[in-house]
Design a protein around this nucleic acid. Structure first.
Length: 735
DNA sequence: AGCACGCCGACT
DNA sequence: GTCGGCGTGCTC
């Protein structure tokens, strides 16, 4: 008998390489045995050794001579392959956002796994000694298994089944309001997706938890993904989920996923989700790619929040991908917000009917919604920062021992320094932007490139020693309030204390928590901050919120600016009067103050009525008339180059290529001419962009897909050598 | 994207 | 004489 010739199998592997690199599609390797798609492997690429995912063979298979292929290094043993749902999600995201499969796949894996050898992984996977299963846990599991209906799809068996840690007695559930009850049963009876529209304090979190619990109780394999915009801004949500579910399912059952975790923590969480040991994953946008074989529920809290859109690398929208993923794997998707994105609001319009809109209008345990107080700044002395009525109101709150929150979306002392003699301005030498004056450390700082320098003692243009700060930042507001409230006393006789929270005062680890503690303990009477304090934080004693200069967004060229402003002010208003018992004990009414030169603007009028629906309706009508999203679909192509001319020339050449190349759907898309970006130059790189618009999403997708190689081709042309980079942003949030 | 290779300026 | 700048080109 002749010895059997060794057999080689060709496997396709997606690795982290960009689409337009010549190696943007999955690469071929040989292995002694066939490997299923979704398998993690290590492969050689040039001189490097990388993690990759085995991928199905492309349909347009060009047969390759296996003798020219390199063998893969190793299979990452001990891990179930990522299932078909995960593969489809990654494949879809790669196609939709014009990236390579490997880039998306690797972005979803924990960094520690990416540079781990097969041996290192095997060592980490050694199961710790299983703990003795407590009687209670066993009983709970048995009960759960009994109650379990057949799961809609067969999830993979968990890798190393482990007994949950001895659970404590589950806490008694608080009774649901009739509203919550009705919403829960709607979610139970429908497949979704759902838009849960409910104001701050309406009890959305309790609804999320009920729906999650119901799914987890129904099957021991079931898993839930709960996404939040920024996890460190919502520690309350995490605490509540842990308090509810750790006693039920064990300490391993709730894991987090966000970039603030250490590599080891992230790996642990990821493995727990992948094996099914973790029942609930709580994470930021990256967690939409978590491998969760038993996924049954996806919650996207604060779904309108722009941080769901990744702004670097692969520019995906975790919210949109969550909807796709839920649809694909049969998980219920719940989007929640007090001020939904206009996209979601439109989709949940009963006449459109893509999502089921569920409304929770009541504010449980919170006081009445704050009253809106408009200050017409055209009637105030010029250059007023704190109008007399606002200052009087703040003073009164301090004297009553209540807290106020002053919002200004600009950190630093002044956005620019200015010489009245020679017109010198503190321009950044590297960017088309002013350097911001930070008084605390006497620096000028560019918020775009980070350039930091000492404040000059005299005007660099003419030597004039008198350079003036122009405009106001949070640092200056803090200083002015210190002065204005110097003689104001709190009920305990102590002078008013001003605090400030922005990116500058919280850059050190733990600083945010420290500052928040000062507010919670009542040390601080007036808190000045940027929009980072408008989100999430639960300030019980704040009864007044003021936006001192919100008008900027009204005149922005960005069509989404009014939406963002409304949402921010609505969220800010939600900070006031969160504790009904405190409010009634104080006998004061919470107030939201707005100083505006356009007090009649419809954004403010709608805010006065706390009327999101009519605001949304008006905005949507405008968008429809102007054929803008959600009634049209957009993509941006951006080019960075040494000169603005070169950047625009590249985009024009790409446009010409699209026209001459007779790309599909050329007639269904509109290619706008290239324009400089709002901040044209950053770190000595000139930036230009062009907008592509279509009324049909499919047409836009097909066009972009066909255009991609042409963009790469134009980039390689000798006349475009000075292009630093180019990128495509599908469904951009800012234009 | 990395990472080599490769060809020109300021240092032990 | 080397160290190191980043421009070009390749990776199954």
């Amino acid at each position: 008998m002749p010895e059997q010739a060794p057999t080689f199998h060709v496997v396709h592997v997606a690795v982290h390489t960009p689409v337009h690199s010549g190696v943007g599609t999955p690469l071929s390797y040989t292995h002694s045995s066939p490997l299923p798609a979704g398998c993690l492997v290590r492969v050689p690429l040039g001189t490097r050794h990388l993690l990759g995912v085995v991928w199905p063979a492309p349909p347009d298979e060009t047969p390759i001579d296996p003798s020219k292929l390199r063998p893969l290094d190793a299979v990452m043993q001990g891990l179930e392959p990522m299932n078909g749902h995960w593969q489809r999600l990654v494949g879809f995201a790669a196609r939709y956002y014009q990236r390579s499969v490997g880039e998306i796949a690797m972005a979803g894996l924990p960094p520690a796994l990416r540079d781990m050898t097969a041996e290192q992984l095997a060592k980490r996977l050694q199961p710790p000694k299983p703990k003795q299963r407590s009687k209670k846990a066993a009983a709970a599991l048995a009960a759960a298994a009994e109650a379990a209906a057949a799961p809609p799809q067969a999830p993979q068996a968990p890798q190393a089944p482990q007994a949950p840690q001895a659970p404590q007695a589950p806490q008694a559930l608080i009774a649901l309001s009739a509203e919550q009850q009705s919403v829960c049963s709607q979610i139970e009876q429908n497949s979704g997706p759902f838009l849960l529209y409910g104001s701050t304090g309406s009890g959305k979190t309790e609804v999320y938890m009920r729906v999650v619990q119901q799914a987890l109780d129904a099957s021991p394999q079931a898993q839930a993904l709960v996404m939040v915009p920024e996890i460190n801004l919502t520690p309350q949500l995490q605490e509540r989920f842990e308090a509810r579910f750790v006693p039920l399912f064990g300490a391993q059952a709730v894991v987090s996923m966000h970039s603030g975790m250490t590599d080891v923590q992230r790996l642990k969480s990821w493995l727990a989700a992948h094996t099914g040991q973790a029942r609930i994953v709580l994470g930021t946008r990256m967690s939409v790619f978590a491998s969760m074989p038993g996924l049954q529920v996806i919650v996207v809290d604060e779904e309108h929040d722009p941080s769901y859109k990744q702004q670097e690398g692969a520019r995906y929208s975790a919210r949109d991908l969550a909807l796709w993923r839920g649809h694909d794997c049969g998980a219920k998707v719940i989007l929640g917000s007090a001020t939904p994105s206009l996209e979601s609001w439109h989709a949940s319009d009963p006449a459109v009917g893509r999502y089921l809109r569920l409304h929770m209008p009541s504010r449980i345990g919170a006081g009445a919604l704050p009253r809106l107080r408009m200050v017409d700044m055209t009637q105030q002395p010029k250059k007023t920062v704190f109008s007399p009525p606002l200052l009087a109101a703040i003073t009164e709150r301090v004297q009553k021992g209540e807290q106020s929150l002053i919002l200004l979306n600009r950190r630093g002392f002044a956005p620019v320094l200015f010489c009245a003699d020679c017109n010198w301005k503190s321009d950044c030498p590297h960017c088309s932007a002013h350097q911001v004056f930070h008084k605390g450390d006497r620096t000028l700082r560019c918020h775009h490139c980070g350039d930091t320098r000492r404040v000059p003692h005299a005007c660099p243009g003419c030597g004039n020693p008198d350079i003036l700060p122009l405009g106001k930042g949070t640092e200056q507001l803090e200083e002015e309030l210190e002065r204005l409230l110097r003689n104001v006393q709190r009920p305990d006789g102590r002078p008013a204390r001003i605090g400030r929270i922005d990116a500058d005062t919280t850059k050190h680890k733990g600083a945010l928590e420290e500052q928040l503690a000062l507010v919670h303990s009542g040390e601080v009477d007036v808190l000045v901050g940027t929009q980072m304090v408008a989100k999430g934080h639960d300030f019980r004693r704040i009864t007044l919120v003021a936006a001192v200069q919100p008008d900027g967004a009204l005149f922005s060229s960005d069509f989404r600016a009014p939406e963002r402003l409304f949402c921010l002010l609505m969220q800010a208003a939600g900070r006031a009067g969160r504790d009904a018992s405190y409010i009634s004990a104080q006998g004061s009414h919470p107030e939201m103050w707005i100083q505006s030169f356009e007090p009649q603007h419809m954004v403010y009028q709608a805010l006065r009525q706390h009327d999101y629906p009519s605001f949304a309706q008006q905005q949507l009508r405008e968008r429809q008339d102007a054929a803008m999203p959600p009634f049209a679909f957009q993509a941006l192509v951006r080019a960075d180059a040494k000169t603005q001319d070169a950047a625009q020339a590249f985009l024009r050449a790409a446009t010409d290529a699209a026209r001459q190349g007779q790309l599909p759907h050329l007639d269904d898309v509109f290619l706008y001419p290239p324009i400089p970006m709002t901040v044209q130059r950053v770190a000595n790189v000139e930036r230009a962009q062009m907008l592509i618009e279509a009324t049909d999403r499919r047409a836009l997708q097909r066009f972009l897909h066909a255009w991609q190689p042409w963009l790469h081709w134009v980039r390689g042309h000798p006349s475009h050598k000075s292009i630093v980079r180019w990128l495509v942003d599908v469904d951009p949030l800012t234009l």
